[in-house]
């Protein structure tokens, strides 16, 4: 489904990504972790072309993201993305947030869009809040709305860019629950996160990045039980200590 082939990227003279290759098969859940500044967020933003790459190739469902001729707008409509800071539209209520792209991009009628929005808002457990504005919701609720907004487009894959990093601790689980449900339903997912409990529970593979390189790309059990590189061992010992 997602093929990342030897991509490299620089911001000025700073090399953010170096020869990164990995893939996500249909229905697979891949977690990407690593210290801050390791390039994991940049990597995931390259997958739907939000960040351009200078070298290498990314294809999603057969479409070449890195080819300049590809219609990125069309491609992005098929890939969902969830951001660290939710990025709900603050001037629209929850329902409008979910309907905008459905109507403008997928050309659904108002009633189709509303029906879809209501179903998804119910699925993330926020039916009582559908007419509220994002500012009236907690962080966890906002992120669940953001997930529903992406799902409203019937995406073929979902990208999560640190979806719980900006949340208060007691709200992390409600968001992870929605993501676990999504994974068990068979959604293809690429998730940048530090939530190792989530990775253990639903990830098929875990990718560890450091200084712009993919250091390890392993099956989930092996990743935790048998880390090969000293860098990963060091990282795991630090984050799994408590």
């Amino acid at each position: 489904m997602i093929e990342i082939d030897n991509i490299s990227k620089k911001y000025g003279t700073f090399q953010v990504l170096r020869d990164c290759s990995t893939s996500v098969a249909k229905g697979e859940v891949v977690v990407i972790c690593g210290p801050s500044g390791s390039g994991k967020s940049t990597l995931i933003q390259c997958v739907n072309g939000l960040e351009p790459v200078q070298q290498g190739r990314i294809t999603v469902d057969g479409m070449n993201v890195t080819d300049k001729k590809t219609n990125l707008t069309q491609l992005r409509a098929r890939i969902g993305m969830v951001f660290q800071h939710f990025e709900l539209y603050p001037h629209m209520n929850v329902l409008e947030n979910l309907c905008l792209a459905q109507e403008k991009v997928l050309n659904r009628t108002r009633s189709e869009a509303v029906a879809k929005a209501e179903a998804l808002i119910e699925r993330v457990g926020l039916s009582d809040h559908i007419h509220k504005h994002p500012g009236q919701l907690s962080g966890g609720q906002q992120q669940r709305v953001a997930i529903a907004r992406s799902l409203a487009m019937d995406p073929i894959a979902m990208l999560f860019d640190e979806p719980t990093s900006a949340l208060d601790p007691e709200m992390i689980n409600e968001v992870l629950d929605v993501m676990v449900q999504l994974a068990t339903d068979g959604m293809t997912m690429m998730v940048v996160t530090h939530e190792m409990g989530f990775a253990r529970k639903v990830a098929d593979r875990v990718v560890f990045m450091d200084e712009g390189r993919i250091v390890e790309d392993r099956k989930t059990e092996d990743f935790f039980s048998d880390p090969e590189s000293p860098r990963l061992r060091d990282f795991l010992s630090k984050i799994l200590q408590y």
């Binding site: 707008t73 491609l75 992005r76 993305m81 539209y89 953001a146 992406s150 487009m153």
Partner: peptide
């Protein structure tokens, strides 16, 4: 970015 990611031009 959020707009772009949902396929809006």
């Amino acid at each position: 970015q959020a707009g772009k990611s949902t396929g809006l031009g």
